[in-house]
Every structure is written in structure tokens, then in C-alpha cells.
């Protein structure tokens, strides 16, 4: 089932939190909403499935949807797993129970999803005894167990450590493949969008700035804010480069040059004053004042230059992105 919206707007205290002219998620498609903290990602997700007050229209299969229709179609996984005071199995069955399925039947249908999420062995345990990662797995199993035609995930991995997150990401990917649902994933992590979503939308200040195929969106920022969001944090304005557009690059693609090193071919080279050297465990980040803003370089090269000394940075032209504005 496809889900979408037209002119969806959420306001609070006279302030517009979210304003989306149109968003469509096709049947069976996964779309990621990527945005910084406070961009309105969760609000957009909640508005789309009528879990918060909003104006505008939500569409299910192209038709305006009522709240009741959305309740039938949608299952939501929130950022923090909210589990009931019950066993893991009963929690996994809770979504079905809330939809009027009898207890035994609900448990029977929930069990395979606990297995799919790798927590079947915890079934008889009380939910209060679970770790954060286990609880989130149960919450996801609970949502999948209702066989939703639309699944919305609100930063489901945000509270988890890196290893748990990677494992869960893989298990979720496999589980989503079993389920033919439209999925909306809200995240601030590019890797999650990359792993799960066919298309990605960038949300900044409550507005969708860019939407398209995940691989292209992640690599082709449309404006400076999207560029920052996507990790292109070194911004090189026209005044510095002599080009007529803003160029952006990832800090790890900006290479510091030695004093006597000639300019490498097919590269943009610019100068600045080294402001700060930040050790990142193995690599270092160099903050360089170009006279037209700060540029950053992340490098594993041995840096002898001290803060205050001039430094040259080179970026291969293939690693530069033009940001029209």
C-alpha cells in the first residue's frame, strides 16, 4: 500500500514545525527521511500517520485517508522502545491484541517475528529485564507482527551501541524483505539510510530540501545545509575558489600538502591558516581558516605544522560538489 501526503503542515505556538508540499512512498518502497536534530523528522513521521495534530491530506493508495484507515494500515516504532509490563512474547503480541486478535492467536503470530529479530530465546522473560538493544528488537518485532502495510520507524537505532546497531540493521533489512510494506525510516544517520532506503529525502527546518535515489542524494547535496548534513562540511565559497558556485567537499577528501609539495594534478588547492589540530584517534582533524570561512581536513598524514602557521589543502576535482544557491 502506498502512503503519501499533500500540503502537510504542523504548527505549534504559531511556529511552523513541518511543511511538506508532497511526499509519496510507493508500495513496498523504503524511504528515509534524513535530517539534523530538531529538523522536524519525528514530527513529520507522526503527522503522516495521524499521531499528531496537522493540517493537509494524508493519502493511502492515492486516496485521502481517515485516522481509522491509518490505524489499520500503519505500525510505528518509536525512538525509545515503549514496552508493556509483561513478558517479551506478550509484548510482541501486543500490536495484534490491540487490533482485537485473541491472545493465543496473537502469540502464535508474533513468535516468528521474535525469531526474525533474533530475540526468540527471550520470549518468556519480563520486558523490564531487557537491554536497550533487546527492547528495541522486541518493539520492532511487535510492529512487524501486525503485518502492517505501512511501517514507520522513528530513529529506531539511535540509542544503541555501534555493534548492536549494525546487527539490528542487518536483521531489520532481512525482516523488511519478508514483509511487503511501504516503509518510512526517520534517521540522522546516512549509513542507515544507505542500508535500508531506496529513496532518501533531506529534511531541513521542517522542509524537504532534496529527495531522490538514496545513492545520488547522499552524494549530491543541493544546497549548503544539505551539504553539511551529508558530511560535505568543508565549504569553499566562490571568493576563495574563483568559481561561480559554492564548492563543498568531505573533510576526509581534503589533503594537507607539505611546504615543498607541488600542486597535485586535477585538484583544487587553497591556502589558509591552521587554527586547530584535533586528534581523532588514528586520524587528526585540521581546522583551517581560509579567510572565507573554516575548512576542515581529516587526515592520517603526519602533521608537523603548528596552529598559526600557513597550510595548503588540496581536493581532487572528483571529490568536489557544486552547490547552487
Amino acid at each position: 500500500m502506498s502512503i503519501g501526503c499533500r500540503d502537510l503542515r504542523v504548527t505549534a505556538g504559531g511556529r511552523t514545525l513541518v511543511s511538506v508540499a508532497a511526499l509519496d512512498i510507493d508500495d513496498g518502497e523504503t524511504v528515509a527521511i534524513l535530517g539534523p536534530n530538531g529538523a522536524g523528522k519525528s514530527t513529520l513521521l507522526r503527522a503522516l500517520v495521524h499521531l499528531t495534530q496537522s493540517s493537509g491530506t494524508v493519502l493511502l493508495d492515492g486516496q485521502p485517508a481517515t485516522t481509522t484507515a491509518l490505524r489499520h494500515a500503519v505500525a510505528a516504532v518509536l525512538q525509545r522502545p515503549v514496552l508493556q509490563r509483561a513478558t517479551v512474547l506478550d509484548n510482541a503480541a501486543a500490536g495484534l491484541r490491540l487490533r482485537g486478535v485473541r491472545r493465543a492467536e496473537a502469540r502464535r503470530r508474533a513468535e516468528p517475528w521474535l525469531d526474525a529479530l533474533g530475540v526468540a530465546h527471550l520470549a518468556p522473560r519480563h520486558a523490564r529485564t531487557l537491554s536497550g538493544g533487546e527492547a528495541q528488537r522486541v518493539a520492532i518485532a511487535r510492529a512487524l507482527a501486525v503485518a502492517p502495510r505501512v511501517l514507520v520507524l522513528d530513529e529506531p537505532f539511535s540509542g544503541l551501541d555501534a555493534t548492536t546497531r549494525t546487527d539490528l540493521l542487518a536483521d531489520l533489512r532481512a525482516a523488511l524483505d519478508r514483509l511487503s510494506a511501504s516503509v518510512l525510516l526517520v534517521t540522522h544517520d546516512r549509513a542507515e539510510a544507505h542500508a535500508l532506503a531506496q529513496r532518501t529525502a533531506l529534511l531541513v527546518d521542517g522542509e524537504i530540501r532534496q529527495i531522490g535515489k538514496t545513492s545520488s542524494v547522499l552524494d549530491e547535496p543541493a544546497d549548503p545545509e544539505c551539504a553539511t548534513l551529508l558530511g560535505f562540511t568543508t565549504h569553499l565559497p566562490p571568493a576563495l575558489t574563483g568559481r561561480d558556485v559554492l564548492l563543498v567537499a568531505r573533510p576526509e577528501r581534503c589533503t594537507p600538502l607539505g611546504d615543498t609539495t607541488p600542486d597535485p594534478p586535477d585538484s583544487l588547492v587553497f591556502e589558509g591558516v591552521l587554527r586547530r589540530v584535533v586528534p581523532l584517534g588514528g586520524a587528526v582533524r585540521l581546522d583551517v581558516d581560509t579567510g572565507h570561512g573554516l575548512a576542515a581536513s581529516v587526515t592520517t598524514a603526519d602533521i608537523t605544522a603548528a596552529p598559526g602557521s600557513p597550510i595548503r589543502l588540496a581536493v581532487n576535482v572528483d571529490d568536489l560538489r557544486a552547490c547552487g544557491r
Binding site: R46, T68, A76, V77, L78, R80, V82, R99, A143, V146
Partner: peptide
């Protein structure tokens, strides 16, 4: 505080 929201998010009236 998110309990009701989560229950409704699972399809509860």
C-alpha cells in the same frame, strides 16, 4: 509519557 502514542501507533483505537 509515550505509552498512549505507541499503543495508537500499533493500531489501537
Amino acid at each position: 509519557p509515550d505509552f498512549l502514542l505507541q499503543m495508537r501507533g500499533l493500531g489501537a483505537t
